[in-house]
Design a protein around this nucleic acid. Structure first.
Lengths: 137, 137
DNA sequence: GGAAGCACTTGCATTTTACAAGTGAATTTA
DNA sequence: TAAATTCACTTGTAAAATGCAAGTGCTTCC
């Protein structure tokens, strides 16, 4: 995978050049909240990503330093993907997005108690999730 | 502009269906931080959006309820765009993205003092920016 | 009244995405 | 141990989105 081209060094533009598309953050979400780790697991998500786009995004995110991968020790044809520290540092971004969507999507699938916790004790939610994800590094 | 199709009610997916592309958040950024308000001003941003995409995104963001527009009272052929409350509520998301990019882009254009303020007093930065933007509603 | 400004639209080439099918290595099954 | 299946992709092709250059139709300035 070729390097990501950054249009400018504006921080918003820099971020969008990495995850400003319809799929990348869904892969990150699956790793953060669903304990998914393999190509086949990501493929099963209900948004129905197509196989070539998933392969492309996994390679791109690895190239961008958000994912790392290693061969499964039990199954040589399976790769285990995991979040890097750079991706784990997106936890606050993800939490704020969840909070925003839960406010404006009246049919949101976000669990009510989770949203309530974000609203009463956001920093703790962020700290706990971050600590959990870092503990698996 | 036709309604936005949401793939699922997952909060991440919901948000990406609205602003998960390379341009929408740059328009929001220009409204939030650069005091830009018109088509011509957005067009001048250094990322060089093309004219048809800008027109498409302005219509889409208005349809999604993030922007409102009115005719300029002084110039009938000019439209003034402004952020709605729904877009202003993205301030925390934007601030977290800026913080993340400033961490990982070693050549970030984000002003050092602004990043420092985000890191020492994030909530105040968010509150002040939000209050300022809401004061112009 | 003509020129210029402004906010778009149009046409077309290029790139990206979606969908279906195929591939080859590793693993499981008979 | 040979055959079938799983797994992680790749390939081909059609459809959609994007980029670029040019054009359009108001409005305002001179």
């Amino acid at each position: 995978m070729n390097e990501i081209k950054h249009r400018t060094h504006c921080p918003i533009s820099y971020a969008l050049d990495i995850f400003g598309d319809k799929w990348s953050l869904l892969i990150i979400r699956d790793l953060m909240f669903q304990n998914k780790k393999t190509y086949g697991e990501f493929l099963k998500s209900e948004e129905r990503i197509s196989t070539n786009i998933l392969a492309d995004r996994l390679a791109m995110l690895e190239c961008a330093g958000l994912l790392s991968s290693k061969q499964d020790t039990e199954n040589k044809s399976r790769k285990i993907y995991s979040l890097t520290a750079k991706a784990i540092d997106l936890v606050p971004v993800i939490i704020e997005i969840i909070n925003w969507s839960a406010t404006y999507d009246f049919e949101t699938a976000a669990p009510k108690e989770f949203i309530a916790r974000i609203r009463t004790d956001k920093q703790t939610v962020i700290n706990e999730l971050t600590a959990y994800l870092k503990s698996t590094l």
